[in-house]
Amino acid sequence: MYPLLKKFSRLAFASVLAALSISTVSAKEITLLNVSYDPTRELYGEYNKAFAKYWKAKTGDTVTIEQSHGGSGKQARAVIDGLPADVVTLALAYDIDAIAVHELVPKDWQQKLPDQSTPYTSTIVLLVRKGNPKGIKDWDDLVKPGVAVITPNPKTSGGARWNYLAAWAYANKKFGGNEEKNKEFIKALFKNVPVLDTGARGATTTFVQHGLGDVFISWENEAFLAQKEFPGKFEIVTPSLSILAEPPVAVVEKNASKKGVTDVANEYLKYLYSAEGQDIAGKNFYRPRDQKVAAKYTNFKKLDLITINDPLFGGWQKAQKKHFADKALFDQLYVPSNN
């Protein structure tokens, strides 16, 4: 009787120990670094909390996500130079392509997740002051004399490149494909720009806090955010034509695999497409890909949208070469204003 009891208790003790060690082994502490662009601070602030909760419930592991924000191009450059990002969530595919050139991200990164790895989209709208004193209705009004336009610098800001291309697309439609007229339009628009900030958030501050400019060419989500932070001071004017801004996400596989967190990183990005992820995007003024979730958010107006892959632009590589490279169109057309 007693030897059996002894054996049994030893077995019980061993299995309790085993169970404990298994649970302590699997309750891991994981850290991910998400290198993102400027306007997503609030979005990822909320999303990271949600994901951590989801992941803990699912696997018992505690995941902490560190955030870094800055101009999209600048952040891509930093990742290339060694910033140990596990995932990148940037403003344009062009910036992630640059990282892919250095083999930190696989060359076919954009096909790894649905919708060309863009879980949410945005567009470019026009933000004006309450009452719209200058009567801005569309892109045309931005080239009129006496209208001060705020936009960041397309050479340094991802958002600004979307701005420029949206304006170009509008001009192209208006002038029926006359490239010379397009150039004049862009030239006139940038002539009305008193200050060229390096980043989207900087430009927002210039318009919103410093009170400079009559109209701000803005990411849609930034425009909504400005309205939320400063109720009653601004109005959003939706132009007739704009560009579909698709800020993509990717796992930086070289860094993540070194740390052994590739799986979590993948799940982190995948969760952006889940109902909760899409909902958080919508709440933070990004247009969810999921149409069911998007339907809840009535503040997103319908408008004519062109994408980067439209023949007019032919994708980021072509657009970069034609418009934003050194001595390309922007450099030729931009003359610092004397305002």
Binding site: L33, D38, R41, E42, E66, Q67, S68, H69, G70, A78, L83, R201, G202, T205, V208, Q209, E229
Partner: peptide, 24 residues
């Protein structure tokens, strides 16, 4: 710096971040 929040932001950098987040 790399601007990693809570890790590689010194006071001057943090001030810029707060300012950019409308937390004047």
């Amino acid at each position: 710096s790399g601007h990693i929040r809570g890790k590689t932001n010194t006071m001057p950098l943090h001030i810029e971040i707060l300012y950019n987040e409308y937390q004047f």
